[in-house]
Measured scan of single mutants.
Amino acid sequence: MASQGTKRSYEQMETDGERQNATEIRASVGKMIDGIGRFYIQMCTELKLSDYEGRLIQNSLTIERMVLSAFDERRNKYLEEHPSAGKDPKKTGGPIYKRVDRKWMRELVLYDKEEIRRIWRQANNGDDATAGLTHMMIWHSNLNDTTYQRTRALVRTGMDPRMCSLMQGSTLPRRSGAAGAAVKGVGTMVMELIRMIKRGINDRNFWRGENGRKTRSAYERMCNILKGKFQTAAQRAMMDQVRESRNPGNAEIEDLIFLARSALILRGSVAHKSCLPACVYGPAVASGYDFEKEGYSLVGIDPFKLLQNSQVYSLIRPNENPAHKSQLVWMACNSAAFEDLRVLSFIRGTKVSPRGKLSTRGVQIASNENMDAMESSTLELRSRYWAIRTRSGGNTNQQRASAGQISVQPAFSVQRNLPFDKPTIMAAFTGNTEGRTSDMRAEIIRMMEGAKPEEMSFQGRGVFELSDERAANPIVPSFDMSNEGSYFFGDNAEEYDN
């Protein structure tokens, strides 16, 4: 993207840094990872977990959730003011799984939030270390993106479920800051804005008074975040219109849905970061690795190297396929839920299948599930090659597409044709070009129609051997075009429920 120079890199967003050079960025990201790792080690000690239990991804998720809940100030305040039966607002906890007599047992633990905050700050040299908290939120978000298709949420806001490739980060909490905003897809931002506008339509006082002023500035800020994701002048001009509207209503909703559809071809720039579970960072720190000293990046080879040398386990339900569970977590670790499966298959070195073909449910185990038949197995999170994460949407291309997802959002900077089903997408653009945004709409449609099938995206960008740390010898991959490109292809993934 041309304006790259004016933006802070995501590592800076990730670490609240002012302008830093590459070495400083690597050190501050490393410091953040160190903090998460030290916190995780301490929690495993508190909970008396064995090494194996500490490497269980379900335990990692519970521990991450506990610290996120302990620092969720708004919710904590709300819980104190609106006490609900049987919930102690000062405590947080969740299921911890232990191996007892050759069987997995679930144990519900409860801790004072104050105590968890103390352990977290102690692991982070006394700081609140917001960057580390956001990092864990993005890992949870990436896992949700890989596990669930947001059909219901899309339909509720009037969008087409086939636009799911635009929904990265749709389950990120509001408090995820600049680093969170960077990884949100165009569809996620559109959905947040539509929800806001709908509230304004239904509630006369939404934009009024002292609160209304705050609401208005939040609305304009979200519009600017979305505008910054678009790469064409016409899309940005249309966002200006939406932002400046005196009284946002149905016309703005129409414009936003139009823009979301246009992003299936004229893709937005959305950041991709490899955020790993805390149970990967903990053992690495415990083994003596100093992330701050060595430096770390979320968008280069580092996460690949770390996963190459990590042992992570997962509980497996009786009829689940461990290899499929591994694929789910591998995609989440690489922030690749909406990437082209052919690119992923090449990088991973084994075939990556669409969601609907995987015999696996989510990673988390519900409290009512029976533990008797639970097994555990090693997650295979290694890769054959590594590639640089991208934040450009890439230019655009036609490809055989599917009944489910009709476009992709690249996660890796790797040369390819970008699949999208042009006739299906263009069919949504018939007729409606009147109104105050008509010239911009016409211009956007013209650009979409001009998108050429034979153009290559990320020209000359390749993948790298894991021994090639400096990215000196790019390998331009070859793809098996007979395979499906979309992950949520004609899909039956479970729906995400809060």
Results as ranks from 00 to 15, higher is better:
Arg19Thr: 07
Ser482Leu: 00
Pro95Ser: 14
Arg461Ile: 01
Met136Gly: 06
Arg19Ala: 04
Ala181Ser: 11
Gln405Lys: 15
Arg99Glu: 06
Gly431Arg: 01
Tyr296Leu: 06
Arg317Ala: 06
Tyr385Asn: 12
Gly185Phe: 03
Tyr219Phe: 11
Tyr148Ile: 13
Ser376Tyr: 10
Thr23Gln: 14
Lys325Leu: 03
Gly54Arg: 11
Lys7His: 00
Leu79Met: 13
Ala493Asp: 00
Arg416Asp: 00
Asn125Pro: 03
Gly200Leu: 06
Asp128Thr: 14
Phe479Glu: 00
Tyr97Phe: 14
Ala403Thr: 15
Gly362Asp: 14
Pro277Lys: 06
Asp290Arg: 07
Lys184Ile: 06
Val183Ser: 09
Val414Pro: 00
Arg156Met: 05
Thr232Ser: 12
Lys103Val: 15
Asp127Gln: 14
Tyr40Gln: 11
Pro474Tyr: 00
His82Gln: 15
Gln398Cys: 06
Gly394Cys: 01
Leu68Tyr: 05
Pro354Thr: 09
Leu344Thr: 13
Ala411Cys: 15
Glu24Asp: 10
Leu143Glu: 06
Leu108His: 10
Asn202Ala: 11
Gln58Arg: 11
Ala123Trp: 10
Leu79Gln: 10
Ser287Asp: 10
Ala471Pro: 01
Tyr148Phe: 10
Asn205Tyr: 14
Gln311Arg: 15
Val67Trp: 06
Lys227Glu: 12
Arg243Thr: 07
Leu341Val: 14
Thr151Ile: 07
Asp439Val: 11
Ala178Gln: 12
Asp72Trp: 13
Thr171Phe: 05
Glu469Lys: 11
Leu226Gln: 12
Ser170Trp: 10
Thr437Arg: 00
Ala22Phe: 02
Gly356His: 07
Ala373Glu: 01
Phe304Gln: 04
Ala373Phe: 15
Tyr281Arg: 08
Asn142Asp: 11
Arg243Ser: 05
Arg461Tyr: 03
Val414His: 01
Asp240Asn: 13
Tyr313Ser: 11
Gly30Pro: 01
Arg384Ile: 01
Thr15Gly: 00
Pro477Asp: 00
Thr6Asp: 00
Ser69Lys: 05
Met448Thr: 14
Met448Phe: 02
Ser335His: 06
Arg317Tyr: 03
Gly5Ile: 00
Gly404Val: 07
Gly30Ser: 06
Asp101Cys: 03
Leu49Ile: 14
Pro354Glu: 03
Ile425Arg: 00
Gly431Ile: 13
Arg102Leu: 14
Met191Trp: 06
Arg246His: 12
Ile475Arg: 01
Gly30Arg: 03
Asn319Phe: 04
Gly180Cys: 08
Ala387Glu: 05
Ser262Met: 09
Ser376Ala: 14
Ile194Val: 15
Arg446Thr: 13
Gly94Met: 11
Glu80Gln: 11
Ala233Leu: 12
Gly462Ile: 03
Ile475Trp: 01
Asn319Asp: 02
Leu466Ser: 01
Leu193Tyr: 00
Ile36Ser: 09
Thr147Gly: 08
Phe346Lys: 05
Leu193Ala: 10
Lys357Tyr: 09
Ser407Asn: 13
Asn483Gln: 13
Ala2Glu: 07
Glu11Thr: 03
Gln241Tyr: 03
Ser217Val: 14
Phe258His: 10
Arg461Leu: 09
Glu495Ile: 02
Ala472Gln: 11
Thr130Gly: 01
Glu252Pro: 06
Thr23Cys: 10
Thr396Gln: 12
Lys90Pro: 00
Ala278Pro: 05
His135Gln: 12
